[in-house]
Design a protein around this nucleic acid. Structure first.
Ligand SMILES: [Mn+2]
Ligand SMILES: [Mn+2]
Ligand SMILES: [Zn+2]
Ligand SMILES: [Zn+2]
Lengths: 162, 162
DNA sequence: TGCTTGTTCGCAACTCGTGCAGATTGGGCG
DNA sequence: CGCCCAATCTGCACGAGTTGCGAACAAGCA
């Protein structure tokens, strides 16, 4: 996304107002490479501006996404992550801590894919999953329980098959 | 996943019981290439077995996933989709109707990706997005609103910036 | 047939977001 | 500088998707 200053101009150009809440979020997002969730941003924003509404954070994020200044990434069932880097790129996600980093793939050859018959593909998302250095070193466990172990009722008196 | 018959044996081997609910789901999933959501399966199952609980459907799906017989796919923020095809493959998703089809990519060269430093990648998911033949022909609209248009307050008296 | 567990049900609770409507406020204008 | 009004913000209810819980049930085995 563009710098807070440029966004300010862009917003005004569209008849949108420049509120302190928006300016704060512009600043928190600009150059932010952590791919934060809406809630992470809300909590960070709350530190600087106690009382800001979670709703306002969602609204501003939606606005920025609609304007093409921010990219919304959905990896998995959890919460959406936001990325100020709107250039064409992909991601690696740590299955243990959720850390997410940019990955640049030279050139995705859609051509080498079989089964796209009839579809007019407009975007391609690649998500690499694994564990980051830190989580591996600390032995933090991968989420996927050891399959059969967790399913066997005799293994542990399961309350439910959650 | 394996055939209903084989699963029956596998379940019993693990001390799990064979209930009619489970057997029904085994049948509904086997050879099912539609990548159904839990709710789609619940509705289909309800037709054959009125009274089956949504909870039971979720539980059985979770069990099968834990056993490695079923693959759970999360594309986007919506509901999870389930895939009895556990072979290594990727997907194309229609952004208009949600149709999802298998895509086989010759060989994903993780090597050609920059930024994976430190991560020990264990899986790679590629999701192609676009519109299927039917939706394109019928002119069904893509979800992404025309950006700036929806953001401009003067364009349409927006109630909120949703 | 009876018993022991694993299962099923139904409903509450939870997470992530969105719809709503009343209270606020940015910012163009006189 | 102060007004006015549309654009915003906030708080809360509500909705989708999924899981926690505990009482009622029922496979599988003796
Ligand atoms: Mn990124
Ligand atoms: Mn598939
Ligand atoms: Zn990690
Ligand atoms: Zn379609």
């Amino acid at each position: 996304m563009r710098s807070p200053t440029d966004l300010t101009a862009a917003f005004r150009a569209h008849g949108l107002k420049l509120t302190p809440q928006r300016q704060l979020l512009f600043r928190m997002l600009y150059d932010n490479a952590t791919h934060p969730s809406a809630d992470a941003l809300f909590m960070a924003a709350s530190a600087e501006m106690p009382g800001i509404s979670r709703r306002t954070v969602y609204q501003t994020l939606n606005d920025l996404v609609a304007m093409g200044e921010l990219r919304q990434i959905a990896i998995g069932t959890g919460s959406a992550r936001f990325d100020p880097n709107v250039d064409d790129h992909h991601h690696v996600v740590c299955t243990a801590c959720g850390e997410m980093r940019d990955v640049y793939v030279d050139d995705v050859d859609l051509a080498g894919a079989a089964g796209l018959d009839g579809f007019d593909v407009t975007s391609t998302d690649i998500v690499f999953r694994g564990r980051c250095t830190r989580c591996r070193r600390r032995g933090r466990p991968s989420p996927s329980t050891s399959a059969l172990a967790s399913i066997s009722p005799s293994a542990t008196t399961r309350k439910d098959q959650s």
